[in-house]
C-alpha cells in the first residue's frame, strides 16, 4: 500500500479526492442549511436514492484514501522511531478499512430498508 500511495501518485490521489470532498462538503452544508431532512422517512428516502447512496459511498472512499495519505505524511514527519511508526500506521490502516466496511454496510442496508 505504502508503495502505491507515495510520491507523485499520492500527490495526485490526494488532490483528486480533495476536489471531490470539497464539492461534496459544500453540497452537504447546503443540504443541511436549506432543506434538512426533518423525518426518518425523508432521511431514509434521501439515502436510498441511488445517486445519493453512490455519492455517499464515493465520499467515504475519498475520506479514507485522503485520510490515509494525510496521516501517512504526518506520521512520517513526526514519528521517527521505526516500531512506533509501523504500529501507528498499521492501527490507522486497519481502522480506516474497518470504517470503510462499516460505512458501506450502513449505506447499503439503509438502501434496502423498507
Amino acid at each position: 500500500m505504502s508503495r502505491q500511495a507515495s510520491g507523485l501518485r499520492a500527490w495526485a490521489v490526494q488532490r483528486i479526492s480533495a476536489v471531490y470532498l470539497g464539492f461534496y462538503f459544500i453540497y452537504l452544508i447546503g443540504l443541511f442549511l436549506f432543506s434538512p431532512p426533518t423525518s426518518y422517512e425523508a432521511w431514509q428516502g434521501w439515502i436510498s436514492h441511488p445517486v445519493a447512496g453512490v455519492g455517499l459511498l464515493l465520499f467515504f472512499a475519498s475520506v479514507l484514501i485522503h485520510a490515509w495519505v494525510g496521516m501517512r505524511d504526518v506520521i512520517i514527519d513526526y514519528v521517527p522511531i521505526f516500531l512506533a511508526r509501523l504500529t501507528l500506521l498499521t492501527v490507522i490502516a486497519l481502522g480506516l478499512i474497518a470504517c470503510g466496511l462499516w460505512a458501506a454496510r450502513i449505506v447499503i442496508m439503509a438502501g434496502t430498508a423498507a
Binding site: Q44, I47, V63, A67, M71, V74, I92, C99, W102, A110
Partner: peptide
C-alpha cells in the same frame, strides 16, 4: 484539523447508523 476530523469518523458513522 485533518487529524481531528479523522478521530470524528467513527462518531459520525455511529450517528449515521443510529439515524437510519
Amino acid at each position: 484539523s485533518g487529524v481531528l476530523m479523522l478521530l470524528c469518523v467513527p462518531v459520525l458513522l455511529y450517528l449515521l447508523q443510529l439515524s437510519l
